[in-house]
Amino acid sequence: MGIAIDKENTKFLNLLLIADLAFISVHCFYLLGIVTGPLYSIETDMGYAEIYQYIKECWIVVLLFILAIDRRRIIYLSWSLLFMYLLFDDSLQIHERLGEYLAQYFELKPMFGLRAQDFGELGVSMLFGFLLFSFIGASYLVSDNLEKQISKRLFILVVLLACFGIFVDILHTAIPWDQVFELFGLLEDGAEMIIVSFIVWFTFSLGKSQVNPSEIQGNN
């Protein structure tokens, strides 16, 4: 694909993952009562781990936006907008707030162990996902083969992120048992941190990539 995966890039990924594992370990100490204070939990809004997550998401947005300008390709801009939404959604709780409003406006009812607000949140996520991926899809159609391969990899990573951010979150809410509840919380937020680190590393690698025209032709 012409993406540079050298020792420097690998070291960068390792640093990101070490930081993720450090936050996850501190969260486990918090659950065991070894450390106190909710800011040490990876589930706490505006906690230490979540601020770190916001910084990584900001890096992704900036790196993709720079690629869009440098290479004059709209596909990178479309992906940058998607991650910008994810950053704002995480930091400003967009789908939670709009989901609560939709649940009240449409008088949604709780079902299957889920709150009415959960259905509203799912509707908001699906709406923004449809709009943003429509833009990405349109950009994909006018992209060259290399950019399509890059988009496919980003799409896989985003799908993995959605699986933990949306579907595991639903299970997290629906299952009432305390020990399983803590396990789902750790799985959801810990996996999200690791996946976002891989996306940071991937977009960073794109900026250092050396495009080989013969590779592009070979993938046609």
Results as ranks from 00 to 15, higher is better:
Met1Thr: 10
Ile3Tyr: 05
Asp6Arg: 08
Thr10Tyr: 06
Phe12Ile: 05
Leu15Pro: 00
Leu15Glu: 14
Leu15Cys: 09
Leu17Gln: 05
Ala19Lys: 07
Asp20Met: 00
Asp20Val: 02
Phe23Leu: 13
Phe23His: 09
Val26Arg: 12
Cys28Leu: 12
Tyr30Glu: 11
Leu32Asn: 09
Ile34Arg: 09
Val35Cys: 10
Thr36Ile: 00
Gly37Ser: 10
Gly37Met: 09
Glu43Asp: 13
Gly47Ala: 07
Ile51Phe: 14
Gln53Lys: 09
Gln53Leu: 07
Cys58Leu: 15
Cys58Gly: 14
Trp59Gln: 12
Val61Asn: 05
Leu64Phe: 05
Ile66His: 11
Ile66Ser: 09
Ile66Cys: 11
Ala68Thr: 08
Ile69Asn: 10
Arg73Gly: 14
Ile75Cys: 11
Leu77Gln: 06
Leu77Trp: 01
Trp79Gln: 04
Tyr85Gln: 06
Leu87Arg: 01
Phe88Ser: 09
Asp89Ala: 04
Asp90Gly: 12
Leu98Glu: 10
Gln104Trp: 01
Tyr105Ser: 12
Lys109His: 11
Leu114Tyr: 03
Ala116Cys: 03
Gln117Pro: 00
Gly120Asn: 07
Val124Thr: 09
Val124Trp: 07
Phe128Asp: 07
Phe130Met: 14
Gly137Ala: 07
Tyr140Gly: 06
Ser143Trp: 03
Glu147Asn: 13
Glu147Gly: 04
Ile150Gly: 01
Ile150Thr: 11
Val159Lys: 04
Leu160Arg: 04
Leu160Phe: 12
Ala162His: 03
Cys163Ala: 11
Asp169Tyr: 06
Leu171Gly: 06
Thr173Glu: 14
Ala174Ile: 01
Trp177Gln: 14
Trp177Phe: 14
Asp178Lys: 11
Glu182Ala: 12
Leu183Trp: 12
Leu183Pro: 00
Ala191Val: 10
Met193Glu: 12
Met193Pro: 02
Phe198Trp: 11
Ile199Phe: 05
Ile199Pro: 05
Phe202Asn: 02
Phe204Arg: 14
Ser205Leu: 00
Ser205Arg: 10
Gly207Leu: 08
Lys208Arg: 15
Val211Gln: 06
Asn212Ala: 04
Pro213Val: 03
Gln217Arg: 13
Gly218Arg: 13
Asn220Val: 04
